[in-house]
């Protein structure tokens, strides 16, 4: 299907192309409209939001909702917590997964099969089975209601997937390159640092950003493990906001939601191309 079908070739259904565009348009509306609406709500004044005949678009670009949302202390603290947790998790996971992924690919051990099996298996189990024991475990070592406890949990749950992705990238580097380095007399560390690491860099970036976003977005573990309002992460704070004032302050809610999306949206815009190409080649080629 990479060849453009129908439309362009003579003798084919002349309606095919317009219909395809129509379908694409419908998809784009379905996907984009909620986002545009969120954006427009964030710029509306509370008067506009209450009036029954206000248009879909805001009357003016009114940043009040954004400043209000930022000034809300708990949202700001929550964003800080989220950032801290996500960055720490990412650093730990990357540091641990990189050597492990390399070892799993280059030394053909039985571990690789085990690791893959575990990655798949861990997907099947409902979180409830994991969260109760984790909660009890963290409670015993005094890490419930702490960001450190959350980091530990996130790191462990991000590890299998990072390992999986990184393995794909490592496997894509021809082992001959390393052998060539060894033949030329480079030490093992030098080969790794000068040959493997640069080639691995894009994959490493993608993997660590992925970990970052997953931790930034995570909700369930945080919901169970964090009760202290000072320790809550952004998704938690937002969810609580919905339950309380959010029903009244729709504009602020929308603004806060948009702000919370910025890191992940920014990341996706940046690596959009690489994501479709690189991530998939990493995962598909395994």
């Amino acid at each position: 299907m990479t060849t453009s079908t129908s439309g362009s070739k003579p003798g084919r259904n002349p309606f095919a192309r317009p219909l395809q565009y129509l379908a694409l348009l419908a998809y784009m509306c379905f996907l984009a409209f909620p986002l545009l609406f969120l954006l427009s709500t964030a710029f509306k004044t509370s008067r506009e939001l209450r009036s029954p005949d206000a248009g879909v678009l805001p009357e003016s670009l009114n940043w009040q909702n954004f400043t209000d949302a930022i000034e809300k202390a708990d949202l700001f603290t929550a964003a800080g917590n989220s950032l801290l947790v996500a960055v720490t998790t990412t650093v730990i996971v990357t540091a641990v997964a990189l050597p492990a992924a390399y070892a799993l690919v280059r030394f053909r051990t039985r571990l690789r099969g085990l690791a893959t099996g575990w990655i798949l298996l861990s997907q099947v189990f409902p979180f409830i089975l994991i969260i109760i024991p984790l909660f009890l475990l963290l409670k015993n070592i005094g890490l419930v209601n702490t960001l450190l406890g959350l980091v530990l949990v996130y790191a462990v749950w991000a590890l299998p997937f990072s390992l999986w992705m990184l393995q794909g990238y490592v496997a894509a580097i021809p082992v001959e390159l390393e052998e060539a380095g060894a033949v030329d007399g480079a030490s093992r560390m030098r080969t790794l640092g000068r040959i493997v690491l640069p080639l691995l860099a894009p994959g490493l970036v993608a993997t660590s950003l992925f970990t970052f976003i997953n931790s930034w977005n995570e909700f369930f573990f945080a919901l169970v493990l964090i009760q202290d309002p000072d320790m809550q992460t952004l998704p938690l704070a937002l969810a609580r906001f919905v339950g309380s004032e959010g029903q009244v302050q729709l504009g602020q809610l929308a603004a806060a939601a948009l702000l919370a999306c910025i890191p992940s949206l920014g990341f996706f815009m940046l690596i959009q191309k690489r994501l479709t190409a690189g991530l998939l080649s990493g995962a598909v080629k395994g």
């Binding site: 996907l31 909620p34 986002l35 609406f37 969120l38 976003i213 930034w216 977005n217 995570e218 909700f219 952004l234 998704p235 937002l238 969810a239 919905v242 959010g246 809610l253 929308a254 939601a257 919370a260 999306c261 992940s264 949206l265 990341f267 996706f268 959009q272 994501l275 479709t276």
Partner: peptide, 14 residues
């Protein structure tokens, strides 16, 4: 791709 980048909590709010 965008919905992928959004936390489920925010998708729900939206």
């Amino acid at each position: 791709l965008v919905p992928w980048a959004m936390p489920p909590v925010i998708i729900a709010i939206m």
